[in-house]
């Protein structure tokens, strides 16, 4: 999988590159409009992360260029503005997703995977992990041939953990992803623990474990 990151902030770019390289993607970068435009003209990418505030041009124009070329590949607009306007404009111009800075690495990873999954499996391909099979289109989870019922939140937690398997997912990142922005001021993320406990019970027959990391977050491992 080839990914292009268009981001003018070098350290931000470095973080994103390293996060995605851990997932074994082939990552290329561009730090300005011109380079990005040239690269987009020559190569095609499976996923493009596009910061729309570039020093020498409007990122949304790049988006228009990508879409007019019709090469396929998903586009995630990244912005520090988090303005409704940008979000709508981006999505109207054909972006697949919108990610507001700052974000957690786990979230970036999840968004990229979701875009790639939509593009290449059309949302229909099942996911196999250990002795578990997941059918995302109808949220079905089968362990050793037996279907296990997961409620919406348990399913969301599991999918997020699977997307970030073998990586530390902090409680804050998990809470934000599963419960949304409104939960972020809750006085503690302790309430996540009871959800994880339920999840572990349901995963008891699988060879997937959810390990607590020093009370900081969780890590999904496959035995």
């Amino acid at each position: 999988m080839k990914i292009l990151i268009i981001e003018d902030e070098p350290e931000m770019l470095d973080n994103m590159r390293r996060t995605l390289e851990r997932e074994h993607y082939n990552v290329e970068t561009a730090t300005n409009f011109k380079t990005a435009s040239t690269k987009l003209g020559v190569y095609s990418y499976d996923c493009i992360l596009l910061d729309i505030t570039l020093p020498d041009g409007d990122g949304l124009e790049l988006l228009a260029q990508i879409k007019s070329q019709g090469k396929g590949g998903g586009v995630i607009v990244v912005s520090a503005k988090d303005s409704l306007d940008d979000r709508l404009k981006g999505l109207n111009l054909g972006a697949d997703d919108y990610l507001a800075k700052p974000f957690h690495n786990a979230e970036l990873n999840a968004r990229v995977k979701a875009v790639l999954r939509r593009l290449y499996f059309d949302g229909h391909k099942h996911i196999e992990i250990g002795n578990m099979v997941i059918h995302p289109e109808n949220r079905e989870i089968i362990v050793d041939g037996d279907q296990i019922e997961f409620n919406r939140k348990e399913y969301d937690i599991l999918m997020y953990m699977i997307t970030n398997k073998n990586r530390l997912v902090t409680k804050a990142a998990l809470a934000e992803h599963v419960w949304g922005d409104h939960i972020d001021q809750a006085d503690s993320f302790d309430f996540i623990y009871s959800q994880i406990k339920n999840l572990r019970k349901k995963l008891s027959k699988s060879n997937i474990t959810v390990e607590a990391v020093y009370g900081v977050g969780y890590k999904l491992n496959i035995a």
């Binding site: 350290e11 931000m12 973080n15 520090a80 700052p102 690495n105 786990a106 530390l168 900081v216």
Partner: peptide, 27 residues
């Protein structure tokens, strides 16, 4: 402030992931 915040958060997350740390350090 968004960008420096994003850089700091992501850098720290990567650091925790990429380095063997004991409990105290992680916390």
């Amino acid at each position: 402030l968004q960008t420096p915040l994003a850089i700091s958060i992501n850098k720290l997350e990567l650091f925790i992931e990429n380095n063997p740390l004991d409990e105290e350090q992680t916390k």
